[in-house]
């Protein structure tokens, strides 16, 4: 593990995070948005792991475990909502799901 410098790990996590963010912003399908969110969560998890290994602390991995459970719960709730939305509106397009006339 020591062979990989911290900058590379962080750079990877930033790239993953931005990819996830772009996915959230440009994708219209709700499921794809949820998946992009997972990518973003994992990017932050990666950043914690890298930081933890840089200083030789266990905190980073504990944080990642926390994020993992959070992500699992989030996917559970999110997929449940997606199911309900599809039942009611028969579409998963985020743009056509707006009801506000601001």
């Amino acid at each position: 593990m020591n062979g990989i410098p911290m900058e590379h790990g962080l750079l990877l996590s930033i790239v993953l995070f931005v990819l996830g963010l772009v996915g959230v912003l440009v994708r219209r399908n709700l499921i794809m948005i949820l998946m992009s969110l997972e990518v973003m969560l994992n990017a932050t998890g990666l950043a914690f792991i890298v930081a933890g290994s840089r200083w030789g602390e266990a905190d980073g991995q504990i944080m990642f475990l926390l994020i993992l459970t959070l992500a699992a719960a989030e996917v559970g709730v999110g997929l449940g909502l997606v199911l309900q939305i599809f039942r009611r509106f028969h579409t998963l397009d985020a743009d056509s799901l707006t009801e506000m006339k601001g």
Partner: peptide, 17 residues
């Protein structure tokens, strides 16, 4: 400010980002 309340989730996400 009212015009920013579009109800479009992606728009909100963009502005948050």
């Amino acid at each position: 400010i009212k015009t920013t309340q579009t109800g479009c989730v992606r728009w909100y996400a963009t502005s948050m980002a």
